[in-house]
């Protein structure tokens, strides 16, 4: 039997009120692979993640996860199948403690609530000392770490990370990068990183996809990306345009 891909996206399209945000996007992700998705603001990256996790439903096309079509599954069902996700603008349970933030996904998305294991995860991301603090009181870098902890607590097969490096200082970027490498080497989980900070991204991934106006315009290694004429055009074009709000 043919070895199946972990995640297979086939010709996915999505419009919001006449505005086509994704146009026939197709790609695959293999077990344990790390894939980067980059693109200018408004190119549809976050929408793509929302389609994968089921928050938004695509108009056409299909998503296969471990060989199974998941188009009709609700976000919580996909989480239980092994999808962990972080958000560009962190979405923590602000009035709950750091520990509770990890226990909830463990109980409902993962194998069951286990305080000891939750504490281990918090140690891994360096938040153990803050476990009884309210999540709303954390700094940005700490919030990003907690989002990561929450995402891995469901023991995912794929981690979908939406701009984990955004807004962080260089030191924090390096720390998160090391953390991701550690998570990858210890668990072998596949990762999709939607990213703006290319420098950090290129240190962890060998394959990138470039989205521009909802279309894939490049797929391959990071080195080739800078040489692609279309990619250069998409990015240079952006520089002269007024900044557009990103869909989230």
């Amino acid at each position: 039997m043919e070895e199946m891909s972990l995640l297979k996206v086939e010709r996915v399209s999505k419009s919001f009120g006449g505005n086509r945000v994704l146009k026939e996007v197709s790609f695959t992700l293999e077990k344990g692979e790390i894939l980067g998705i980059v693109g200018p603001n408004g190119s549809g990256k976050t929408t793509l993640l929302n389609v994968l996790t089921g928050i938004v439903r695509q108009d056409s096309g299909s998503v296969l996860f471990m060989g199974r079509r998941i188009d009709r599954l609700k976000p919580h069902q996909r989480a239980r199948m092994g999808m962990g996700r972080t958000f560009q603008i962190t979405r923590l349970f602000s009035n709950l403690t750091v520990l509770e933030n990890v226990i909830i996904p463990m109980h409902y998305g993962g194998g069951g609530a286990d305080e000891r294991k939750a504490e281990e995860i918090l140690k891994m991301v360096g938040l153990f000392e803050l476990k009884d603090r309210k999540a709303g009181n954390l700094s940005l870098a700490q919030r990003k770490r907690l989002e990561l902890a929450r995402a891995i607590s469901v023991e995912p097969k794929v981690l979908l990370l939406d701009e984990v490096f955004a807004g962080l200082n260089p030191v924090s970027v390096r720390e998160i990068l090391e953390l991701l490498k550690k998570i990858h080497s210890e668990t072998g989980v596949a990762m999709v990183l939607v990213e703006h900070v290319l420098k950090a991204l290129f240190q962890i991934t060998k394959r990138v996809i470039v989205l521009s106006e909802g279309r894939i315009i490049y797929e391959g290694d990071p080195e080739g990306m800078a040489k692609s004429e279309e990619v250069v055009k998409a990015y240079l074009g952006e520089r002269y345009e007024a900044p557009r709000g990103q869909r989230s």
Binding site: T53, I55, K74, P75, H76, A79, R80, R85, F87, R91, L92, F93, S94, N95, L96, E100, I103, I104, P105, H107, Y108, G109, G110, R150, V154
Partner: peptide
Amino acid sequence: YALKAIREDETAAETMG
């Protein structure tokens, strides 16, 4: 916990299972 997670952030809650 499930109820509180919904109160805090419903989208996050469903993404967490």
